[in-house]
Design a binder for these strands. Structure first.
Lengths: 200, 200
DNA sequence: ATCAATTGTGAATTGAGATTCACATGCTAG
DNA sequence: CTAGCATGTGAATCTCAATTCACAATTGAT
């Protein structure tokens, strides 16, 4: 028998392992048998700690929310200059890309197709919290005068997201041939130029 | 009994209906029973025309490839000015967004997780063909002098993709509250500015 | 018109994965 | 120390969707 753990601790382990499976191999690869094995339990054991697989997925979603907002907050504290903060955040995402291709794909797919409205609301809060934090950084940049003020912070936040999303897909699709770092080295300066420029 | 059709015609119908299901409700919603019903057959009837569901999905992928490259080519012919061509293409994607949220999510998820390498290669060709066409437009813009020449066309094509991807997720996640058209009205002029600007 | 190939049907079969259940074991409060 | 609860186990079971199969209807070539 695997060592016993209190349900709180077990839930944490299960959620983390589920996230790991999801991140590496996608939602389709998250199954109870495999999850149980990673956790060091037998499939039925999982059900001592979660009522259903759906409940596990919800927990994973919450974990993703925590981590993602955590990244944004960390970036906001990593530098003084807002533009530098964004750069730091972007760089962090690029670094995560290799090991965790599943997360964005999962979040987006769930956002689009989940039939349970609780789940959809959950995903929505993830994306909106994240965008709000990015927008907040941009707003501070506008206040400090380093970012043009004639554009909504939210609109810029969405464009920032647009800097990241293509990297995710291209990195995977080309099995590593696509160089995300290199792309960012081109696109980031253009993005920054855009944030400042008010005309030629 | 449903009217008989030759296998070629039936395959076309099945593929189109599968794409419609996929586009509206996601890959998870594509099942043989539902597909058969849409086509006007009984589930087993599907197997007269496809060996397996996987084969159907492959056919859908090819159909997506055709349509997507078709859009890009159409856009390239819709205007003389390359920048105007890009705008036309972007606008087309925005218009498609509402009814077909499933396609991008599917393509990206397959790109990332499909275990069959044939499938992955297929997806890769979709994305690369599309990007190549966009890059081609940009290259022509550079030749004509309307787009700055100090940046790789491909890098700009990737950024163009970044203009589109966030719209897909946000539109769906907010259940229509997010106004993609409005976002594009902000982001597109900035993008164009960026294509031209060489410094303040 | 006829026969062979093609296409369609409805009823099984299969398989994979989630979930349940009866029982075993370990922990903890009293 | 021991009763009772929480946690773990292994063997079913349940569910759902894909797939197969034996048989029927239709079509097209001769």
């Amino acid at each position: 028998m695997a060592g016993k753990r209190k349900t709180g601790a077990r839930q944490k382990i299960i959620t983390e392992q589920a996230l790991a499976m999801l991140a590496k191999h996608g939602l389709a690869a998250v199954n109870i048998a495999g999850l149980a094995q990673r956790v060091g339990l037998v499939p039925s054991g999982i059900y001592r700690h979660f009522k259903s697989k759906a409940e596990i997925v919800d927990a994973v979603l919450n974990l993703i929310l925590e981590r993602l907002t955590g990244f944004a907050d960390a970036a906001a504290e990593a530098a003084l200059d807002p533009i530098e903060q964004l750069r730091s955040l972007l760089q962090h995402h690029v670094a995560m890309l290799n090991d965790n291709p599943g997360i964005p794909s999962f979040v987006f797919a769930e956002a689009i197709f989940s039939t349970q409205s609780r789940r959809r609301a959950n995903v929505r809060s993830i994306v909106e919290s994240y965008l709000a934090r990015v927008a907040r950084i941009i707003e501070r940049g506008q206040e400090l005068g380093s970012i043009r003020s004639d554009v909504e912070p939210t609109a810029i936040a969405v464009m920032f997201l647009g800097l990241i999303q293509p990297l995710i897909i291209l990195r995977q699709i080309t099995e590593g041939e696509f160089d995300a770092k290199r792309q960012v080295e081109t696109s980031w300066p253009l993005f920054v130029e855009m944030l400042k420029v008010r005309g030629p």
